[in-house]
C-alpha cells in the first residue's frame, strides 16, 4: 500500500513538475519576450512648484557650506523639498579616480553640505550613489566623496552588478536601458549635485549629463547621439532639485581634466528645479553661449525644460 503511494507520488510529482516547467514558446515568441524585458518605471521625484515660487537661484561666494544653505533658503527652505521620512538619493559625479582639486568630480565639501541640509530637514536616510567610469573603490576614496558621505552620515551604495535592472527611459535615442536601480528603488527624493565641466564631445557635463552615472551596460554607445541622449536623460529623471557647483570649474581637457591649470575659480553655485535652465546658466561659466549647446536646444524643443532662465522666477544672491 505504501509502495503504491510512493510510486504514485513520484509519478505525479515528476509529471506535474515537467508540466510546470514546460516552455512551448516558438522562436518568434522567445525573441519578442527577450526584447520586451520587464523594465521598471521610476517615479517623478519633483515637488509641486508654483509660478510664484523661486525656481532657480544663483549664489555667488566662496564658502560652499554657506552657499548651499543660502540656495535652499532662497528656493523656499529645505523643508519645501525634503519631508520627514524621505529617503533622499543624492547623486554626485564620482566618475573619475581623481583628487577633488582637479574638479573632475563633485566637490566633497559641497556634497557634505547638501547631506547635512537634508538631515536637518528631517530626512530618514540619505543615500549617495554613482556608477563611475573608473573603478568605484578608487573613485569614492580618491575624490573624497567616501569620507564626506560617511562624515555626514550618508550611506553609500556601490554599483555592484546584481543591483542593476532594466529601466524605461522613454526617450528619442534611449527606450530602455540597464540602470543602477537599487538606489532608485529606495529613494523618495533625488537631488543631483554636479560640477561644471568642459567635455570633449558634448562641450559640457553638468546636471543633465550627471544622470549618466545612474546607468550601466554599454554606456559607451551614447556618444553616437550624445545630445539626444543627454536630453533623454533629463526627460527620464525628474529630480527634486539639481545643484550645479561652479565654485571651481573644469575649463579644459574635460571630462577627465588632470592639471590644476585646467581649473578656474568662478565662485558660483546654481540650484533649481529646472535642470535645463540651471545647465544653461552653468554653461556661461565656461565662457560659452547656451544657444549653441546642442542638448539644451533639444531639451527646449521637446519641452523638457527652459534654457532661457530669464523667463523663470529666478534670483541671484551673494554670501
Amino acid at each position: 500500500m505504501r509502495r503504491l503511494l510512493s510510486t504514485g507520488i513520484a509519478t505525479t510529482g515528476i509529471i506535474v513538475g515537467a508540466l510546470l516547467l514546460l516552455d512551448k514558446r516558438t522562436g518568434k515568441e522567445y525573441f519578442r519576450q527577450m526584447l520586451e524585458k520587464h523594465a521598471h518605471r521610476i517615479p517623478n521625484f519633483s515637488v509641486e512648484v508654483s509660478a510664484s515660487d523661486v525656481q532657480m537661484v544663483v549664489v555667488r561666494g566662496s564658502d560652499v557650506k554657506r552657499m548651499i544653505r543660502a540656495a535652499f533658503d532662497v528656493l523656499g527652505g529645505a523643508r519645501k523639498f525634503i519631508r520627514r521620512d524621505d529617503v533622499v538619493l543624492i547623486k554626485p559625479n564620482v566618475a573619475f579616480d581623481r583628487p577633488p582639486a582637479l574638479c573632475a568630480t563633485t566637490n566633497p565639501e559641497t556634497l557634505k553640505a547638501v547631506i547635512e541640509v537634508c538631515y536637518e530637514a528631517g530626512a530618514k536616510e540619505v543615500i549617495v550613489a554613482d556608477n563611475p567610469i573608473n573603478e568605484p573603490e578608487g573613485c569614492f576614496i580618491k575624490t573624497g566623496i567616501k569620507r564626506a558621505s560617511i562624515e555626514a552620515g550618508a550611506r553609500i551604495i556601490y554599483p555592484k552588478p546584481h543591483l542593476f535592472e532594466m529601466v524605461e527611459i522613454g526617450g528619442v535615442a534611449l527606450k530602455s536601458w540597464l540602470a543602477f536601480y537599487e538606489p532608485l528603488r529606495l529613494a523618495t527624493k533625488v537631488i543631483g549635485v554636479a560640477p561644471v565641466k568642459d567635455h570633449n564631445l558634448s562641450s559640457a557635463s553638468m546636471c543633465m549629463k550627471n544622470w549618466y552615472g545612474l546607468l550601466g551596460g554599454t554606456r559607451n554607445r551614447f556618444h553616437q547621439r550624445i545630445h539626444d541622449v543627454i536630453a533623454d536623460l533629463a526627460n527620464w529623471m525628474k529630480p527634486t532639485l539639481v545643484i550645479l557647483d561652479g565654485v571651481r570649474v573644469l575649463m579644459s581637457n574635460g571630462p577627465t581634466g588632470g592639471r590644476l591649470s585646467d581649473v578656474a575659480v568662478k565662485n558660483t553655485i546654481i540650484a533649481g528645479v529646472d535642470q535645463v535652465a540651471v545647465d544653461a546658466f552653468g554653461y556661461t561659466l565656461l565662457g560659452r553661449d547656451p544657444n549653441e549647446l546642442g542638448y539644451l536646444q533639444r531639451a527646449k524643443e521637446r519641452g523638457i525644460g527652459n534654457p532661457n532662465w530669464g523667463e523663470l522666477n529666478w534670483k541671484e544672491v551673494s554670501v
Binding site: L201, Q224, I226, N253, T256, G257, G258
Partner: peptide
C-alpha cells in the same frame, strides 16, 4: 560620431 577614447583619456 564617437570619441569615447578621447573622453576617458586621463592625461592632461
Amino acid at each position: 560620431p564617437c570619441l569615447v577614447c578621447q573622453e576617458v583619456c586621463p592625461v592632461s
